[in-house]
Simulated assay, not measured.
Amino acid sequence: MNHSTIQQIRAHSNGIPLIGKTKDFTPPTPERVTDAVTEGRIIESYRDKGFKMDDFTFTQEGMSAKQAQALGVVTGAYYPLTLIKAVQEPDGSLTTYVHEITGHVTKAAPASNKMGDEVTWKVDGKASTYKLTINGSVVHDINLQTQKVVMFGQDLTSKFIDAVS
């Protein structure tokens, strides 16, 4: 059985590729938030409450403290990050994922402290914006400030925002 395989991940900050190898990356996960509705019901139902995003993380091997500082990877800094992922599909074709994130770094520190190991930085953050495109098609596009929510290509909020503008 053939499976899709991540062949390469590359992190960019302010349009500049980060030095070293991106070892792993977890994008923010958009989620619809619901609330239970039970009063006067035999079977519990739910109502939409809104949306949220999980934190993002990535680990960068070979990045020095000086490079991290120069690229803005410091706790509390507003941080633009683009991660591009190349995936080989079972049929041999290539799929490109582009994750564009802006937000605040909440933790940034060397992850490895063993003699002889390459310096590896682990960075965690909270996203203010997140856009995922796969082969150029928008999958998610979320902006906390404008309250724009596109999930799985569906615009879920513009009609509400436009109605009160």
Rank of each mutant, 00 (worst) to 15 (best):
H3Q: 09
S4F: 10
S4V: 09
S4L: 08
Q7C: 04
Q8N: 07
R10V: 09
A11W: 03
A11F: 06
H12E: 13
H12N: 09
S13Y: 06
S13D: 11
G15I: 12
I16S: 07
P17H: 09
L18F: 08
G20A: 11
K21W: 06
K21R: 10
T22Y: 08
T22R: 15
K23N: 04
D24C: 14
D24V: 08
T29Q: 04
E31R: 01
R32P: 01
R32I: 02
V33A: 01
V33K: 01
V33H: 00
T38Y: 06
T38K: 10
E39K: 15
R41D: 02
R41L: 12
I42Y: 11
I42G: 08
I43N: 11
I43F: 11
E44D: 10
S45Q: 13
Y46V: 08
D48Y: 01
D48R: 01
K49Y: 00
F56P: 00
F56V: 00
T57R: 10
T59C: 07
Q60L: 04
G62K: 05
G62T: 05
M63V: 09
A65R: 15
A65C: 10
Q67E: 11
A68P: 05
A68F: 05
Q69Y: 06
A70M: 05
A70N: 05
G72H: 03
G72Q: 03
V73Y: 12
V73R: 07
V74N: 08
T75Q: 07
A77N: 15
A77H: 11
A77Y: 05
T82S: 08
L83I: 08
K85Y: 06
A86G: 05
V87R: 07
V87Q: 04
P90K: 13
D91E: 03
S93E: 09
S93L: 15
S93P: 06
L94P: 13
T95Q: 13
T96K: 06
I101T: 01
T102Y: 05
H104R: 11
H104E: 10
H104M: 14
A111S: 10
A111H: 14
S112I: 14
S112V: 05
N113A: 15
M115C: 10
G116R: 07
E118N: 15
T120N: 12
T120C: 15
D124A: 08
D124S: 09
D124Q: 06
K126H: 09
A127N: 02
S128I: 04
S128Y: 03
K131D: 00
T133G: 07
I134P: 01
N135F: 11
G136Y: 14
H140S: 03
H140M: 02
D141L: 00
I142S: 00
I142H: 00
N143H: 14
N143E: 04
L144Q: 13
L144N: 12
L144V: 10
T146G: 03
Q147H: 03
V149F: 00
V150M: 00
V150D: 00
M151T: 02
M151F: 06
F152M: 15
G153R: 02
Q154S: 09
D155Y: 04
L156C: 01
S158V: 02
F160P: 02
I161N: 04
A163V: 04
V164K: 09
S165L: 11
